[in-house]
Design a binder for these strands. Structure first.
Lengths: 192, 192
DNA sequence: AAAACCATGCATGCGTGCTTGATTGTTCTA
DNA sequence: TAGAACAATCAAGCACGCATGCATGGTTTT
């Protein structure tokens, strides 16, 4: 068994942590097919057998990576600024262009074909999605009791997803900033 | 050479066509890793050697599939209705939830790691993107000379992409329809 | 000392690419 | 127009590379 007892001392947890971080950056840079266990092990600076010890199968490794990514994304969400609405929208969109979202996207798409992963990914993504919505409402100062407000915020998040997807291959920053600025105005008016 | 002379008679072009269609549906259903040449050949009803004849390498097959998907998407775009703005937005978003977009998305993400594909995909996606924008402006009856209008339409297309991405794992139709309805209203006001 | 932790080598499965052989279609010529 | 040479198209088998999984041996912690 891998964790019959919680890892008593930290060296083990350190390598486990490094393996997860390596898995995430590997996903973000080389995609699903390119993220072989040898690659993430090498990137983590450990042997392949060490990886095999912590995560007996490749699927174990990446299901753990899914939860790790979800946790990191939640954490990033809670660090959002809430002073200015324009800045809040920009920061929100930025969350969808970083390596975390890239990794999540690769997992998301890969989970389409892997039955085991799909359950985990859908479940966790639903959780992160709800949290994203909750925090978005908070930093935007939106009044969800008014009709249409909820859908407005959701649409904004969906647009952020779309921008993140577009950023995958070509990082067209200037275009993105213009779109975000305009949509921030639209949202601002709709929430007024 | 595969096409030193254009395929004189149709049996060949028929199987080539079937291979491309099979590649697209395979991508939409099983994703990139699951779309092996054996799988698409079997789905097309031909032998693996036949596929190998038309597309010597797997990469040849899927680069051809990329262009095929781009062409099909362009064709679908030109069939959009332009009578009612609400209906136009809904139809536009629907283009991002069908199997064509699913296939394009898998190609898009897979091209992140495959250097050869990335060029083709980015180039063609840029073309389709411009055409999408042009047609979106047309069916929405938007006046692009007014400031902010261009960015509003682009944001709408990005939102459609994001909705399509969200539809990959869970087809949350009712939520999508509510979001689309609300933003159709907002866009409608913004373009007035 | 025992158990967790890590490293190395081997075996299997799988997908791709290539080669060979058979069949269909096209074209040139008598 | 017949028919034979020739090219295009399709089918089947083989060899290689690669990633995963497992098993063994060494090292560190408790």
């Amino acid at each position: 068994m891998a964790a019959v007892t919680a890892p008593k001392q930290d060296r083990s947890r350190a390598t486990r942590q490094r393996l997860l971080e390596a898995a995430v950056s590997c996903l973000a840079e080389h995609g699903w097919a390119g993220s072989t266990v040898s690659a993430v092990a090498e990137r983590a600076g450990v042997s392949r057998g060490a990886a095999q010890h912590h995560f007996p199968t490749r699927e174990d490794l990446f299901t753990a990576a899914v939860e790790y990514v979800a946790e990191e994304r939640s954490q990033a969400l809670r660090a959002l600024p809430s002073d200015d609405r324009e800045a809040a929208v920009a920061a929100l969109v930025d969350l969808y262009t970083g390596p975390l979202f890239r990794a999540a996207l690769h997992l998301w798409v890969a989970a389409t074909g892997e039955d085991q992963l799909r359950a985990r990914v859908t479940e966790l993504e639903a959780r992160v999605g709800r949290e994203s919505h909750r925090i978005a409402v908070e930093v935007l100062g939106a009044d969800e009791t008014r009709p249409g407000v909820r859908e407005t915020v959701q649409g904004l998040l969906d647009m952020a997803r779309g921008l993140g997807l577009a950023t995958l291959l070509t990082d067209d920053r200037t275009r993105r900033e213009r779109v975000v600025s305009q949509w921030a105005r639209l949202v601002n008016e709709a929430l007024r």
